[in-house]
Write a protein that binds this DNA or RNA. Structure first.
Lengths: 217, 217
DNA sequence: ACTTATTTTAAACAATTGTTTAAAATCGAT
DNA sequence: ATCGATTTTAAACAATTGTTTAAAATAAGT
């Protein structure tokens, strides 16, 4: 008979302990950073031994790398979803901003975690090159270039376009502590500002990127 | 004779060891974060003993708090500088963006350090209430409210205005690693994108905030 | 020169860190 | 029920952590 042992055990691990460790690690790493937490802290939150964590993943660093890469992937995928829609560019723009704010409300720690994690901790170099291909496959770049050639979209480098979107969607989420601290507002007021900001960003970016087709006043 | 001992020794400490520790701590904390570095690392970079660090500052946490507060103050002051100028609001807007990009090119680690530091590390609550007063004293809020009442400036909550400026100035700097990683560009290309972005942001924000007085095309 | 206060150091502290080793428990298949 | 592999644990590891203590060096005042 064929040896299905490895396959079976793999299937079992996936839904069980290994995934539970990943989930716990994600939560802890997200809120405390790589060097801000201990492997024992993660293990305890799963209800397992520290050694078991190193049994599944080789080290704290390896586990962190895994979580960081998954976070980055989630983040890219949240954009890809929109690019794949069959909609005119301006509708995609509005939808991207809506979805981005919606996605980030569910994962508010993600942007800061990615940027902080990318900058220092876990010395291991993360391969980000795959993500560019992921974005390219959606055809969004060609779509923009065509719109720019037709004079429908303002001629702006795609990196700058990316910066415009990310800046205005991610930063408002990342800066919650700072904004609440400086302006002495509570979570409710901040939430209200955020909702208003979404509409502001939508109008501002549409007006800037598609000046001819979208004139107001 | 009066006792000038305390005054004298204070003056000597300021230019000497105490300040050297602060400078070194700032550099190390900025690049590695609170839990990403050790007191011994800071002490070694100054060329002193670990105990001396605790002699001047009571603990690692106290020292970090000091550095974080100073960083936040620098950051606020970079804005205050512009608000105090005697210029029309639109010129202040352009100047603010120029100065902000200039300031952040000199201290590119500052925004990420502030946001990461504010979010987790150094449990001690930082009093940010003073900064609101610092901004109020420049009269910028009244100036904006007046311009809004006159229909010269778009009616947008000042917190949202703050978010617009900070998002578009700070995020491009903070996201260097991510942008370079995803788009596979080097420091030179990133620098070029940043320079172009400054002009983009200037035009976009001016157009959005002062739609009546600044029409293009 | 002597005394006193300030600055600096070396050494030790208990606690915690990531990781490993070896033994126990669990499970699936015969 | 038994065997073999997989999963889990308890214990120990050496290294590092922030902090403290007590003694030494330096500076200042008289």
């Amino acid at each position: 008979m064929f040896n299905f042992a490895a396959l079976k055990t793999n299937m079992k691990k996936d839904v069980s302990t290994e995934q539970k460790i990943k989930d716990a690690a994600r939560k802890v790493f997200m809120t405390k950073g790589f060097s801000g937490c201990t492997t024992r802290e993660i293990a305890k939150s799963v209800g397992i031994n520290v050694a078991l964590l190193n049994y599944y993943f080789r080290s704290k660093g390896k586990l962190f790398e895994l979580i960081l890469e998954a976070a980055l992937s989630d983040f890219i995928e949240s954009m890809v979803d929109v690019f794949q829609q069959d909609l005119p560019l301006e509708d995609k723009t509005r939808m991207l901003i809506d979805k981005e704010f919606e996605f980030l409300r569910k994962h508010p720690e993600l942007p800061l975690f990615i940027h902080a994690g990318l900058n220092q901790e876990s010395d291991a170099e993360l391969d980000q090159s795959k993500f560019l291909g992921r974005l390219h496959k959606t055809g969004i770049f060609e779509e923009c270039e065509k719109a720019q050639a037709q004079g429908h979209m303002r001629k702006v480098n795609m990196i700058n376009v990316t910066l415009l979107f990310m800046s205005n969607c991610h930063f408002p989420i990342m800066s919650k502590k700072l904004i609440c601290g400086i302006y002495q507002i509570d979570d409710n007021e901040h939430e209200a500002r955020l909702n208003e900001h979404k509409e502001i960003v939508k109008e501002m970016l549409i007006n800037y990127l598609f000046p001819n087709t979208n004139k107001h006043a």
